[in-house]
């Protein structure tokens, strides 16, 4: 098993690496730094519509050399990035770092790593998205939907995780979130606040689950809009991380009503741990 930290050279990469080191130390596991080379540009365009002698061979040669140059550059850039973050980790006293450098799509590469990864850490916005006026990175939602392992989304600089909020609504994925924090401690020994919004029954259920496992936590019932209440509670109580189940109500519900998950991604100011 390993802790996977996805880095792309964006502003959040270092913080992602920091959280990766923290979790790798907690679990005594190696840290894997993953960098993906995604190809996505079509540069030269010829609209002449004429094809002549050897058009196909020439076109293949042209497109290949374009990609080649771009890839070479990105491979070099990616390597430098990986090595610099590895050195950064060793400065912080952590040596057990693997480097993974792959072509393709981030979501595909993560699916390949799903079996070995205990948790995936990724920035809320990648390098491609950070200069654009969008709240969350283009690939985040897709990754949340396709992966079945815990994912931590980072949206700011690193702070040690001491106090964790678990948003519990009784859904299957939130039960998993509870399990992950409480009975199989993914985040190590932390203070746990279990929050339910507008749902006392769910909170009682959570209490029972914990007491039967002989574990301690604070239980809080809040009233109002889930996203507002949770973010308010987080700020007032200096919570370091929010854990929740992703897409509790199924895909169709989310398409029609918009999802709490999506809103939380936009509003939260601390890392979010998602479980499915």
């Amino acid at each position: 098993m390993t802790i996977v930290a996805c880095i792309d050279g964006g502003k959040l990469s270092q913080s992602v690496c920091d959280y990766g080191i923290e979790l790798a130390k907690t679990h005594n596991l190696p840290l894997t730094l993953l960098h993906i080379i995604e190809k996505n540009t079509y540069a030269k365009v010829n609209l002449s519509g004429a094809i002549g002698l050897g058009s196909r061979d020439n076109l293949l040669e042209e497109l290949t050399s374009e990609d080649e140059q771009q890839s070479k550059q990105e491979v070099k850039h990616g390597k430098e990035l990986l090595i610099s973050l590895k050195e950064y980790a060793s400065k912080k006293g952590f040596e057990d770092v693997n480097l993974a450098h792959r072509h393709g799509l981030l979501s595909e590469s993560l699916l390949d790593l799903e079996r070995e990864a205990k948790v995936v850490i990724i920035g809320l916005k990648g390098q491609d998205s950070e200069n654009k006026n969008i709240p969350i990175g283009k690939q985040v939602e897709n990754i949340l939907k396709s992966l079945h392992i815990p994912i931590i989304l980072i949206n700011g600089s690193h702070k040690p995780i001491k106090k964790v909020l678990i948003a519990y609504d009784g859904s299957n994925s939130s039960k998993k979130a509870l399990d992950a924090i409480v009975s199989r401690p993914l985040l190590g020994d932390v203070q746990r606040d279990i929050i339910s919004v507008n749902n006392d029954q769910a909170l009682q259920e959570a209490k029972e689950r914990l007491s039967s496992a002989n574990l301690n936590a604070n239980f809080v019932l809040l009233h109002g809009d889930p996203v507002d209440e949770i973010t308010k509670y987080q700020k007032e109580n200096q919570i370091d991380l929010i854990a929740m189940g992703a897409f509790g109500h199924g895909a169709w519900h989310n398409i029609i009503f918009g999802s709490v998950t999506h809103q939380m991604l936009i509003e939260a100011s601390v890392p979010l741990l998602f479980l499915r």
Binding site: Y42, V45, L47, G49, S55, L59, L63
Partner: peptide
């Protein structure tokens, strides 16, 4: 074959 090459050459993907 020919049209598809024209498409790629014209930037269609």
């Amino acid at each position: 074959i020919g049209q598809s090459i024209i498409n790629i050459k014209s930037g269609g993907r």
